[in-house]
Design a protein around this nucleic acid. Structure first.
Lengths: 207, 207
DNA sequence: GACTAAAATGTCACTCAATGACAGATGCGG
DNA sequence: CCGCATCTGTCATTGAGTGACATTTTAGTC
C-alpha cells in the first residue's frame, strides 16, 4: 500500500473507464440509450456485465460521469473572484470555463449527438438535472458563505437564476447555433435588467 | 360509449388511484421509497402488482403524479395576466396558487414528510426535477409567445430564473419555517434587483 | 524466477421495476 | 338474462443492479 494514488492499477482503471465511455456512447448515439443494454456494452468491450458495473455504478454514469468534475471547477473559479465583485458578475465569470468548453466546435459537434441522446431520454435527462441541481446547491452554499448570509434565500435564488441562464443559453445554442458566449450574456443581461412593479397592496389568496 | 367522461367506471378508477396514492405514500414515509416494493403496495391494497401498474405506469407516479395538474394551472394563470404587465410580475402572480397551496399548514405538514422522501431519494428527486423542467419549458414557450420573440433566450432565462426563485423559497420554507409568500417575494426581489458591471473589455478565453 | 497477497474478473443466483400475453372474472347496457 | 367491454390475476420475460464465491492476474518482495 505504498503509492496509493496513480499506481499502475489506478491508471489502467482510468484507461478502461475511458474506453468504456467511448464505446458505450458510440452505441448510445447509434442505437439509442434505452435500446442498448449493459450486456451489449459488455459484449462490445469483451467483458462481463458484472465487470462493467465494477467500473460504473450505473448505466447513466457512462454518460453523466464527466459532470462530476465540473462542480469542482465551478467552485474553484467562483472562489477566485474578488470579494467585492457583484455576485452576478462573479457567477458570469464562473461560467467562463463551461462557455469556452461549449464554444469549441470540435468538442461541440462530438458532444452534440450525446446531448441529444440525453435530452431525448427522460430517465437520462432527469438524472442530468439531478446532477446540475447538486452542483447548483454547492455553488449556492459558497455564495451564501461569501455573502455572510447563512440562511438567506437571496443568494440561493440568484445562483439558481444564473444556472437557469446557462441552461437557456445552451438550449438556444443547440437550436439556433448562435454563440453560447453571446447567448449567455444576453440571458444574464435580460435577468439582471428586470424591474418589478410594487407588490399588490393586500393579500391575494385565491382558490 | 356514451358518456365517455365521468362514467361510473371513470370515477371508480379515480377513487382507486387516490386510495393507492394515499396507501403508497404512507408506506414510503414509513419505510422509505426504495425499501418499499410495488409488491408491498399491491399487497397492502389487496391487489396484484400488475394491477397497480395498470393504475400507475411507474412507481414514481404514485408520488409525482399530482404535479401534472400544476402545469395547466400555471399556464392558465399566466394567460390571465394583462399583456402590458412586466413579465416578472406576471410570473410572480402565476405562482400565487402554488404559494397559497404551500402556505396552508394543514397541507404543508401532510406533504412535508413526502417532500422529504422526494428530496432524499435521488431517483425520485431526479424525476421531480424532470417534471418541473417540462413545466418550465411550457411556461417559457407561453412567455416567448407573449413577448412575440420566437427564439429569444431572454424570456426562457427569465422564466427559468422565476422557477429558481420558487425552488429557493420552497427550500427555505422547509428549513427555516418562514412564510413561503415572503420568501418568494424576497427571492424574486433579490433577482430583480441585480445590477451587473459592464462586461470585461476583450475576450477572456482560458483553459 | 518463484512466492504471496491484493486486486480484477467471471459466473451464478437473486431482487425489483416494468411489460406483454392470455385467461377468467366482473359489471354495465340492452 | 345475455353479450360485450373492461378489469383483474397469473405467468413469463426483459433489463438494471447487487451479493457471494471461485478463479485468474498482477504487483511487489525475496
Amino acid at each position: 500500500m505504498e503509492d496509493r494514488q496513480n499506481s499502475l492499477r489506478q491508471r489502467s482503471r482510468r484507461a478502461v473507464q475511458a474506453e468504456l465511455v467511448e464505446l458505450a456512447q458510440g452505441l448510445f448515439v447509434e442505437r439509442g440509450y434505452e435500446s442498448t443494454t449493459v450486456d451489449d456494452i459488455a459484449a462490445a468491450a469483451g467483458m462481463s456485465k458484472r465487470t462493467v458495473f465494477r467500473y460504473f455504478a450505473t448505466k447513466e454514469e457512462l454518460v453523466l460521469g464527466k459532470y462530476d468534475l465540473l462542480s469542482d471547477e465551478l467552485l474553484r473559479r467562483l472562489r477566485e473572484r474578488p470579494l467585492g465583485e457583484p455576485l452576478w458578475t462573479s457567477l458570469r465569470r464562473m461560467f467562463d470555463g463551461v462557455v469556452a468548453y461549449f464554444a469549441d466546435n470540435a468538442h461541440a459537434s462530438r458532444a452534440a449527438a450525446m446531448e441529444r441522446v440525453v435530452t431525448s431520454t427522460p430517465a437520462l435527462h432527469a438524472a442530468y438535472l439531478h446532477r446540475v441541481s447538486r452542483m447548483q446547491a454547492e455553488v449556492a452554499a459558497l455564495a451564501c458563505a461569501r455573502a455572510k448570509s447563512a440562511d438567506d434565500v437571496g443568494p440561493v435564488a440568484v445562483v439558481g437564476a444564473a444556472f437557469a441562464c446557462l441552461a437557456a443559453a445552451r438550449a438556444a445554442q443547440a437550436s439556433t447555433g448562435r454563440s453560447i458566449e453571446l447567448l449567455l450574456d444576453e440571458a444574464m443581461d435580460a435577468v439582471a435588467g428586470l424591474r418589478r412593479e410594487r407588490r399588490a397592496p393586500q393579500g391575494h389568496h385565491e382558490r
